[in-house]
Amino acid sequence: MEFLLRVWRQAGPDAPGGFEEYRARDVKEDMSILEMLDQVNQDLVKEGRDPIVFESDCREGICGVCGLVIEGVPHGEPKKTTTCELRMRHFREGQTITIEPFRAGALPIIKDLMVDRTALDQLIQSGGYVSSRTGSSPEANTIPVAKQDQEEAMDAAECIGCGACVAACPNASAMLFTGAKVSHLAKLPQGRPEAARRVTAMTGRMQELGFGNCSNHYECQAVCPKDIHVKFISRMNREFIKALFKKKN
């Protein structure tokens, strides 16, 4: 297969960026889009040109580092796929493919397709955990957890922190990411003692970091490679309101 690639190139965070075109030749349909970019980069290096900077690591859809915007969609079509899992068999022979970085004020571009997602770490740091010191845990089966609660917690905990939800949101909101962590921990008895403190701290931090608010577009769920449900945003809102009442008492 052969494709024409339009790729966003940008030398640094403050440098102006723009699209450049590259031909991708000898593409196999089993290749992932990143393996195609690897191949293009090999040619660029050999020609003495600057290879395209993009990130990837596990290449199996779990580390969450590889987000690109492909044809206007974070992680591209089809749904429930990370960029590294996206195979070339989903494209039409000869097609022009536009590849851009995630764009959001809180996730600034470092170079070309590489963005800075440390804001997501800072969100977790603000409260996305159970304060459970090593050595002080009760026996694991002391507290039974209803299977459906554990399953729902797991549905939220599957988030890989890629930031596609932020990139897809017209408000660049991190509500799905934050909602997933708040819900995962709020759904389990172990997370309840800190539930109010957690939701207050995390939503506060979200605003400080420059993420927008949710206005119910649900683009986030549509692009989420792990299909994290927007109901977790509603749950976060409920937790937030509960926390408000708790404070008043």
Partner: peptide, 12 residues
Amino acid sequence: DLCVAQGIPFTR
């Protein structure tokens, strides 16, 4: 024990 206390959703 520790992982359960941290809120790791082990299958039940």
